[in-house]
Design a protein around this nucleic acid. Structure first.
Lengths: 211, 211
DNA sequence: TCCACTTGCTTTGTATACACTGATGGCAGG
DNA sequence: CCTGCCATCAGTGTATACAAAGCAAGTGGA
């Protein structure tokens, strides 16, 4: 792996995991020393982070980690709704019924995943990511997939804003199951509507439990 | 202006204007000589172009200008539809009626702009860009605006695929006027529907007149 | 005491040298 | 004649040195 990739991956993880909180100054020399690479790959990593919107150059002080307020979350979910609703519609029109039937079954049984003591909820988030991937694949649109991918970076970061309790996640799993079923049935209108409902619930969950 | 900005602006313009056609190899040393800067700012410019999707790194050969086929155009318009329909809805809910009334009047009279001999149709495209900017402003969503901005780069590039005759542009202007009116009236459903119609027509225009 | 100028330092922006990787062409062996 | 290996090389990846710009602090004068 290239040094610039390593620097990028490290910094990106540090930002989305809130180890580097918003406002942190990302100085090139300091980072190059801490990461054990020279300034050149660090610069490349910072440029990529700036392009993604995780960091932003500030006059004179170098680049800093971008803020993420509740207003940002609302804006983020507005974009998310536009993209995911359309993606769900297109997946319903083009997707393979068997694939989404299987995902529906898994999601319907996801309550079990959340009873055992997995503090990071890894198994649930992995399943949700599989549904996202299946939708992306069914849609078969590289530009839409790219837009969703760059959006999800920010969503992972937002996730750390709120504490997710098991009851909420079970509710979310049921909503995901509804979406998967609508896609399996080839019903675009329902898929879009279910996505709208899910995102609205998710946003309110987030806003009510964040500090 | 920084050397890297200059290199980026030059290369980006060269790509969207088709002076650098798809498949062109963007070698760092050759570009640094041609643009009169060193390899470092050229690398930065190439990284930005790759992030935008105008170029893509290819194993061994460096980065090349990305292809743009009719299938890509269809995918692009799918994403465009998702973003612009939602943007039109939100603008209808939040926008200032007077602003869009004025734009509607200008667009309704845009037929006159297209009768005089402006071969590049600059005045019309400038007006359409003003409508886009007004919508972005009314929506007030930085993430949605960013997504639309990165989309429009590709759309400008696609525009060169087809030859735009005055009759088509007058038709497009009427469609734009309809959208502006719906937003001015605060009618989100109509704004979204008019956008859908406009984009469908635009896509078919493009596909039928391209070589 | 306050304002302005200067000086020095910190930090980024650019250039260049070197190392390493992947591709390509030729040559030898089968 | 075909195939596989090796050498060469083009080109990127990284490091470091140097230049320029911005900011802050300190000092001098009013």
């Amino acid at each position: 792996m290239r040094a610039s990739d390593k620097a990028y991956a490290t910094l990106r993880a540090d930002i989305v995991e809130w180890r580097l909180p918003p406002g942190t100054v990302l100085a090139e020399v300091e980072l190059s020393e801490r990461l054990g690479v020279s300034r050149t790959p660090v610069r490349e990593a910072l440029a990529r982070l700036s392009a993604e919107g995780l960091a932003a150059p500030q006059s004179g002080r170098g680049v800093v980690v971008t803020e993420i307020s509740l207003d940002h979350v609302r804006e983020l979910f507005e974009l998310r709704s536009a993209l995911e609703c359309r993606a769900a519609e297109l997946a319903a029109e083009r997707g393979d019924a068997a694939t989404f039937c299987a995902l529906h079954a898994e999601l319907a049984a996801a309550g079990d995943l959340l009873t055992d003591d997995d503090p990071s909820r890894h198994s649930y988030y992995e399943l949700a990511a599989r549904l996202d991937a299946a939708i992306d694949d069914a849609v078969g649109n590289a530009y839409l997939a790219q837009a969703l991918k760059s959006l999800r970076v920010h969503l992972v970061r937002v996730r750390r804003l709120s504490k997710d309790n098991p009851a909420r996640l079970r509710e979310a799993a049921r909503e995901h199951a509804t979406i998967a079923l609508a896609i399996a049935n080839g019903n675009a209108a329902v898929a879009s509507a279910a996505t709208t409902v899910h995102l609205d619930n998710s946003l309110h969950r987030l806003l009510s439990t964040s500090h």
